[in-house]
Design a protein around this nucleic acid. Structure first.
Lengths: 347, 347
DNA sequence: CTGAAAGCGCTTACAG
DNA sequence: CTGAAAGCGCTTACAG
């Protein structure tokens, strides 16, 4: 396989000159440059990334961490409906990473103490880390924040000299959902919430509370149901909600998968959407537009989240310190699962 | 950061001995071994993978290719419902890769000629390639087959000295679906098929045809609808099918997303499932059990596909040649979307 | 603007 | 069973 020494020989220059030209670290005479370009074109030379990392102490590699998996794996998390949300972010992220000439690495690592994580990443000479939705309680998060490894958190808070975050505006998103329902005349609105220990869950809850309060509607804790982001739990929770709280005319699910669980429960009770019950999801997953009926939902701009995460990481890698965090807006997508509030059912 | 030279110094041995012990390539005296272990424990030493790849000419890295994306990216493909099928395979694959001590790399690459792909992977010293569902027509496939890069194809055919494949038994899967319907008394069964240029599409079609023929039911080309694996196309195709071919009592969708499209169309025409129309999907995606009604579907054992793909790749990397391909069975999951054939609608 | 030399952290014949 | 030496393919002061 062709090496930079071969290129040097063919172009009648030294290896140093080849290296300098390729890195752009110094001026190279036009003649030398032309001969080197010629040699590269002719041989299809590509530099050896292992040798480069060895001497540069850093490689053009970004790594991804999803702390929600105990083993730190990525795909087992996103292969579940709860994780579909991240797919679109990852798609945009990968596009951006590749466009910047970086590789995306999903490293194997020992499951032991987390303190070795940062060290492992440094040994692999990763340029930066993208961390998706770690639980704030996760003590491992702090280790990373304290390190000098450039890190961007997605949908989580956490700042440091070499860390910042990009998050969707979950709070406003959930507010938009409530406001839409209030405008349609709904007063008794239930919320299916995921876990309360991660950021997006808490924020969506907060948005719900604020919008309700602003509309002058009293909060009713019985109308806030935890379903752990899970389809099945959402299904069961909705079933008992429908049976016990017949005054409810609308349900907001804090994720589209939970909306699917709610949808099935509503169908099973032979209630019509939206005539009897209005339903709103959160995520705007690709299938939400094809549910019976198509789902009104909140769409975070996931393309922007992924794109900005990488751009921000690049700034951090470039040496910028204390890069400001970014919040990305959400949009209400009105489809057919919401309508005017019905008169009380069964009354 | 600690190097093997540091370990050697601390343990009073030479760097060669440290390396030999770590690689297990030669005998090391118990005393030396104990001192080296001690030094490693005390420093938290991990070898530098860049230096190792540089001298070994190969790294412990597996790379993933999804040819369906023109740019060769992974996430943009699997972030669409058509790609959800692969997620579970990838989850199992990643688990297996990590358990084997390999890293998973999603490399950036120039979009130019594909001929450089193999060379790029070699420059990155990847140990092996997993390729998901390339179109058989893709000329780039051949380049890889001709190379000596260990390669395992998933859901595609292709064999060579250093290449083999692992595929789900699509043909039997689709046969099982038809047989189930025939037992329920259905005679007029429609098939929503994806694209005819990839393996899984063609095989599912073949299974459909064979089972129908074996049941003594004449094939009717009007009942085979192409929907390109797409929810929306499946939705539209089902709409016209329902309007034009009222004798149809059952629909098999060759993927769960297409089944979702069909489901919505059936709901829109105010037909009941399964009383008026039976519906079967293919994939057993996580949401299929929560559709209204829960979907009968074909489940390929995706866990096994991923696991066996890596094990097979490991054999190839180990130098085995002409490793035999593997076919993984599928199972019929009966839920509530199939039932006895109705009398002809509208007659 | 350019080249010779040293070195990044490993592994592997080679000689004991 | 062990160590000294050379080399993997790059980059970067250093000296011109």
């Amino acid at each position: 396989m062709t090496t930079s020494r071969d290129i040097a020989r063919i172009a009648h220059v030294s290896q140093s000159t080849v290296s300098r030209m390729l890195s752009g670290s110094a001026q190279v005479s036009p003649k030398a440059r032309a001969r080197i370009m010629e040699a590269i074109a002719q041989t299809g030379y590509e530099p050896d990334v292992a040798a480069q990392s060895l001497v540069n102490k850093v490689s053009r590699t970004i790594t991804l961490t999803l702390f929600s998996d105990p083993g730190g794996l990525a795909f087992p998390v996103i292969a579940q409906p709860q994780g579909y949300y991240y797919l679109k972010i990852l798609a945009s992220l990968e596009r951006e990473i590749v466009a910047s000439g970086y590789d995306l690495l999903l490293p194997s690592r020992p499951f032991k103490q987390f303190s070795t994580y940062v060290q492992s990443m440094k040994k692999r000479k990763v340029a930066g880390v993208i961390m998706m939705a770690p639980k704030p309680a996760d003590e491992r998060l702090q280790v990373l924040l304290d390190s000098d490894l450039p890190t961007v958190l997605i949908d989580a808070y956490g700042k440091g000299a070499h860390t910042t975050y990009v998050a969707a505006d979950n709070l406003s998103g959930c507010k938009q959902a409530v406001e839409h329902l209030v405008q349609l005349g709904h007063r008794r609105v239930a919320l299916l919430i995921g876990s309360l220990i991660d950021l997006s869950g808490t924020e969506r809850l907060l948005g719900f509370q604020r919008a309700l309060t602003q509309a002058g509607i009293a909060l009713d804790e019985h109308l806030i149901l935890q379903a752990n982001w899970d389809i099945d739990e959402a299904y069961r929770a909705t079933l008992s909600l429908l049976d016990e709280r017949t005054e409810v005319t609308a349900i907001i699910a804090a994720s589209d998968p939970m909306a699917i669980g709610a949808l099935r429960a509503i169908h099973e009770r032979n209630l019509r959407i939206p005539e009897d019950i209005s339903l709103i999801g959160f995520d705007d997953s690709d299938i939400s537009g094809y549910l019976p009926p198509p789902l009104t939902t909140i769409r975070p701009d996931r393309d922007r989240v992924g794109k900005l995460a990488m751009q921000t990481l690049l700034a951090l890698i470039g040496g910028e310190q204390h890069v400001p965090p970014i919040t990305v807006p959400t949009h209400l997508i009105i489809r057919e699962s919401t309508g005017p509030a019905a008169t009380r059912r069964g009354v």
